[in-house]
Nucleic acid binder design. Structure first.
Lengths: 217, 217
DNA sequence: TGCATATGCAAGCACATACTTGCTCCGCAA
DNA sequence: TTGCGGAGCAAGTATGTGCTTGCATATGCA
């Protein structure tokens, strides 16, 4: 309500930046998108750089609360699927802006750092969950911990690549998001040495909860 | 030799575009990088758009010959590792330019199409190899074909994400490229139902060939 | 009523960028 | 020697872009 224009400008800046990148996000375009005179933009933020900096901070803060995995694992397959689903939805929601940040990370290191810690936190969460799985006896002991780390990176990488590329390389993703994520999780669990009875080939369970497309919270 | 400047300009354009993107790749910068007067750039290519278009075509042609997987699988683990290694090196070598292309794919669809078919071909190669694995009895029958497709996408996604993000998000990749790729392949094989004796936990084999960092051919 | 703050509008400035024009110089082949 | 094509150089044009200034208007608070 108060300082409404400030938020309008920040939101407009996020949209324009996601579409056109740093150089393409001109102050005129941002002001137009916000429905605001270009001058008020400078009166509020002083410079384009300062505006985009603040926009990134807001963006990073908004993304802070990612999904979590349960402290005591019970049904790893379902738990991991829901977590992956939320993670995937999160990345998909910011894919445009993330693409821009990544492409500009070499030129503007500050931008890159902003985009990096989200996935890093997620991978950490996954690794922690996996030691819980091992302690609970769900994951066999013969898989070395180094491989568990790599497995976490691998699943995160697959989720990341899926969310980033699915809309661009349509031929590479013939299956629906749900089907793909379910398969990723099953392959992950088998690959990491989960005992066979933990990895049900759930044709029923898959169709049962195929209705939910994204988990927002 | 003949038309030397043409190639110099095209190479310079590729380098500058990879660093700064479309908007950042100004004709002045490209001409400077090529050691050539800006005017000769226009005399050769007519416009910036035409120059960058031709640069992308050259780039796509150079990337055409990716690695292949053997027609008759013998040692899936080693074969997949070498293929993954080559694939990873290929993506790593073009990661800057790929990052730019992806970030501009929404704005300039032509650019996106150019970047898409490389990974698509690789995923196809992987899928074909997997049906050979199944026919050879190396992969168990109880894994449905749908999941095999997803597995191929998953491995490709992990390779892609690793190659694209390793230099930016250093904390997410504590292990060396070789260690990671070897682990990805093992997890992939186990996850896809490869019979246990095919997936050796090769502490020796891993250290043995840990010296080669990239397979160029 | 008064005053401060926020906003809009019009204009402008300095610079960068895509692209053009006109000229000169150089090497090479007829 | 003449002519021709490729290249450099200097200058210029039209537009885009970040940012400033000056002035008018509205809104809300004392």
């Amino acid at each position: 309500m108060i300082d409404d224009n400030r938020h309008r400008i920040l939101n407009a800046a996020a949209r324009i930046y996601a579409q056109h990148g740093w150089r393409g996000a001109t102050t005129r375009r941002i002001a137009d998108e916000a429905g605001v005179n270009e001058v008020t933009l400078f009166r509020h933020f002083g410079s384009k750089e300062s505006l985009l900096d603040q926009m990134m901070q807001v963006c990073a803060a908004a993304r802070a609360n990612g999904p979590t995995l349960p402290l005591v694992p019970e049904n790893p397959q379902d738990e991991l699927f829901e977590w992956s689903s939320a993670q995937h939805a999160l990345i998909t929601g910011m894919r445009s802006i993330v693409r821009q940040m990544i492409s500009e990370a070499e030129e503007r290191p500050r931008v890159g750092g902003c985009a990096a810690d989200g996935p890093a936190a997620a991978a950490g969460e996954l690794r922690d969950y996996m030691v819980r799985l091992r302690r609970a006896g769900i994951i066999a002991d013969h898989v070395p911990p180094v491989e568990a780390t790599a497995a976490a990176t691998m699943l995160m990488g697959a989720l990341f690549a899926d969310a980033m590329n699915r809309d661009l390389m349509t031929t590479m993703f013939p299956q629906s998001v749900d089907e793909s994520l379910r398969a990723y999780v099953r392959i992950f669990l088998r690959g990491v040495g989960a005992l066979p009875e933990q990895v049900a080939d759930d044709s029923r369970s898959a169709t049962r909860s195929t209705t939910l497309t994204s988990v927002s919270e």
